[in-house]
Amino acid sequence: MAVDGKQDGKKDGKPQAPRGMRMRCRLYAKATFTGFRRGQRIQYPNVALLNIEGTENRQDASWYVGKRCAFIYHGKTKKRLPGTTKPTTKRIVWGKVSRPHGKGGAVRARFTKNLNPAWMGYRVRIMLYPCNNL
């Protein structure tokens, strides 16, 4: 026991986790690329539809409007991404959630490059920032 009543090596009596055992926090929501916005005869490949895990209605989906989204895939050759020093095979297509789609919690998103139709069913990350709608 220390003089001030606290144990040595602990802050406020709470044990600290070792350096490699700390909790990880995820700063993105998981979503699935389900297809493109479409009508009966026309498909709009510049607007992707995303189903976000945990959203079940339009009010839940409207919270994600304005958030950035990223589709991460692997290329064949190594290239250097902006802001990195080592080349990698990962590529990122950035986009932005534009509005809710329907009543089931899906959203519409526009990406810098149109997503490949072969990527339907793949995972998309919706970043929980910028957060200005609290």
Rank of each mutant, 00 (worst) to 15 (best):
H101R: 05
G105Q: 00
R22S: 10
R123E: 15
R99F: 06
W94V: 11
K113R: 12
M23Y: 14
A106R: 13
G13A: 05
G66V: 04
F36N: 02
F33W: 06
T89M: 11
N116E: 10
I126D: 00
G20R: 15
K86I: 03
G104K: 12
N132H: 09
K67C: 11
R38G: 12
T85P: 00
N114E: 15
P15W: 06
T77Q: 14
G54Y: 04
K103N: 07
R123C: 04
T112M: 13
A109M: 06
R37N: 08
P100T: 08
Y44T: 09
V3N: 14
K90P: 03
K113Q: 07
D60K: 10
F71Q: 01
R125T: 07
G102W: 02
G105N: 05
K79M: 07
A2F: 12
R99E: 14
P45W: 07
Q43W: 03
F71N: 02
F36L: 02
N51R: 15
Y64F: 04
G39I: 08
R68W: 00
P15T: 12
S62Q: 10
T112P: 00
T88A: 09
R125N: 10
P18Y: 13
V97Q: 02
G39N: 05
M21Q: 14
D8M: 12
K67Y: 09
K10Q: 13
K96H: 01
T112K: 11
K6R: 04
K76T: 08
N133V: 11
G102P: 02
K67W: 10
K103M: 07
K10P: 04
K96E: 01
